[in-house]
Design a protein around this nucleic acid. Structure first.
Lengths: 113, 113
DNA sequence: TAGTTTACCTAGACATTCTAGGTATGTCAA
DNA sequence: TTGACATACCTAGAATGTCTAGGTAAACTA
């Protein structure tokens, strides 16, 4: 049966990583920026998602020193992750399309008055 | 802080009821039909949602006999429910717009090749 | 040097949806 | 007429996804 809900955190993270390698903190900041602060993903949400994606082979992690001297843990999307992203994007399109279809179908009862 | 996810069952149910009064089973069937079977809401999801909406004063229930002689429990959306629907629709638009914005922003890394 | 930001992490709580069951009536085919 | 299927309502408990609320530590900044 079709999935009824979207694992939206996973979709968004994969989508960002498809653009460029990022580290956790950066993902949170970028997500807020690109969504005009609609998404303010919590660390308690993000890190488990990243670790899950890593376990699933969708991303790979590597350490890299920041200009500041601190170590950062960057994530790189794999081919497997790109496939996963494609199917999740498709799920999202189908899901959001269906919601919009239902909303449109009820407009008659709303404010045609 | 803004809600990070949509209570999609509630939004969809309210949206249907904004069009016309419906009974539970009908909501499930209509939802499947109007979403081209993307949504196949389970009874275990629907009934708790309906009861919650009733407790919240967003819908009112009444019994009515079907042509078959069976009793059906119809739900009617209240003014309060219509307000709720408006805010949830707005949440949905903002949420789906944000997802699309993030997806678009990463296209560069995807398949421009 | 104290506070804020950066940067990583986890356990447990909470919310939403599903699974899997229950009850009962109506319809239709074998 | 009986057995299967659709209709129609319901709930308890499991599973899933996200958040709260903590911990650790380095770097910047006032």
């Amino acid at each position: 049966m079709k999935k009824q809900s979207i694992d939206h955190a996973q979709l968004l993270v994969l989508s960002l990583l498809a653009g460029e390698d990022m580290y956790g903190y950066q993902i949170i900041v970028e997500l807020a920026r690109r969504s005009d602060h609609t998404f303010e993903m919590k660390e308690g949400t993000l890190y488990p998602v990243l670790h899950g994606l890593e376990r699933a082979g969708a991303v790979e992690a590597y350490q890299q020193e920041a200009p500041t001297g601190r170590m950062r843990k960057y994530y790189h999307i794999t081919r497997k992750g790109t496939e996963l992203l494609k199917t999740e994007e498709e799920s999202w399109r189908s899901y959001s399309g269906a919601v919009n279809a239902v909303l449109r179908s009820s407009i008659g009862g709303l404010t045609l008055a």
